[in-house]
């Protein structure tokens, strides 16, 4: 009997973890397709539509192509770190999903009730910076090291406002568990969503998420005209694919986090009667977030680096601090 008590949960977690990773990887593959098709539409093109119906096999073709590429290691690179960097980039992107509740009930999340969920998210996401820095340094290439430097400075600068915007959310929900934050947002109507009660925090979170992802308009890390491909310059084949994977998996994670913190997570009508519906609501919210991220990329031009840093330190940081103070004041006054 004792053995069953140990083995059964391990099997359960193992199964859930495998499913989680498979979802993340499939999500990654089809987010790339989604982005290419959607951005093509926005630019009045058609986009990849030849491999399979509507181009649905395009990610498979891309993956196969990268697999059969030669694995080249630059002669001057620090070999160990050069191989380590892509792994460091992708692992945090995958394990951040551990605390996100995908649906109602314990079945749909690995450990959504972790009482330090928000801290875990912040900690794990900031590990991702090491991937960029180490890649830039280990490649022993000027473009790469400049890209790595830019990436580190940008990501850590925006992490401050990112963290402070979530302080306001935790203040509201009085809990750092993601599941509690979702439950806090469902008093029955849509106005319970924190995006309506914390619009400043939601805006700051969205901007900082984009900067953490180093996607347009914050993609100075890999500004093609100046830095070729930034810290990715010396990477090819599957090692490049890992960085690519980390970017898109993180994109899904950020979208899922935004949905969890500000859009009521998995909540929606009839969730209590049909728990499966909660999965659908969550998926729809994440998808909308992804489309908006792509839409922003197609619309906005790239920032200039000094303006990027000034915006992070002089605008977002004081604004998010003021938002925390305002939220605290409103809670004390009994408005929230």
């Amino acid at each position: 009997m004792q053995e069953h008590k140990i083995v059964a949960p391990i099997l359960e977690f193992l199964l859930k973890s495998v499913v989680l990773i498979l979802i993340a990887l499939t999500g990654f593959a089809y987010t790339t397709l989604l982005e290419r098709r959607f951005i093509a539409r926005l630019q009045a093109r058609i986009g990849p539509n030849r491999a399979g119906p509507q181009g649905l096999l395009q990610p498979v073709a891309d993956g196969l192509k990268l697999i059969v590429k030669e694995s080249i290691t630059p002669a001057l690179a620090d070999k160990f770190v050069y191989f380590l960097a892509p792994a460091i980039a992708v692992v945090p992107a995958l394990i951040v999903f551990a605390v996100i509740p995908f649906g109602s009930g314990p079945l749909f999340s690995l450990m959504g009730d972790l009482n330090i969920g928000v801290l875990y998210v912040l900690a794990v996401l900031s590990v991702g910076v090491y991937g960029a820095v180490l890649a830039g340094w280990a490649s022993n290439n000027k473009y790469a090291s400049l890209g790595g430097l830019r990436a580190s400075a940008q990501m850590i600068s925006y992490e401050l406002a990112f963290g402070l915007s979530l302080v306001a959310v935790v203040l509201m929900a009085s809990s750092a568990s993601l599941n509690d934050i979702v439950k806090y947002q469902q008093p029955g109507n849509i106005l319970g969503w924190l995006i309506f009660r914390q619009p400043i925090a939601a805006g700051i979170f969205a901007i900082c998420a984009m900067a953490e992802l180093a996607r347009a308009p914050f993609d100075l890390v890999e500004a093609e005209q100046e830095l070729t491909a930034g810290f990715l310059t010396e990477y090819g084949g599957m090692k490049f694919a890992l960085f690519y994977m980390s970017e898109y998996v993180k994109m899904i994670a950020m979208s899922a986090l935004f949905a969890t913190f500000f859009l009521g997570g998995w909540s929606g009508p009839f969730v209590n009667e049909f728990p499966v519906l909660s999965l659908v609501y969550f998926a729809v919210k994440v998808l909308i977030g992804l489309l908006i991220i792509v839409w922003v990329r197609a619309t906005l031009p790239r920032f200039r680096y000094d303006k990027l840093m000034a915006f992070g330190w002089k605008a977002l940081l004081p604004l998010s601090l003021a938002n925390v103070m305002l939220t605290a004041l409103l809670i004390v006054l009994g408005v929230y």
Binding site: V18, A87, I95
Partner: peptide, 23 residues
């Protein structure tokens, strides 16, 4: 209580290592 986290961490690292090995 953190066991699932360690399992996920282990599997993610394995995936990353496997992908590098594949190429």
């Amino acid at each position: 209580d953190y066991l699932p986290l360690f399992i996920l961490l282990f599997l993610s690292t394995a995936v990353a290592g496997l992908v590098i090995l594949i190429s």
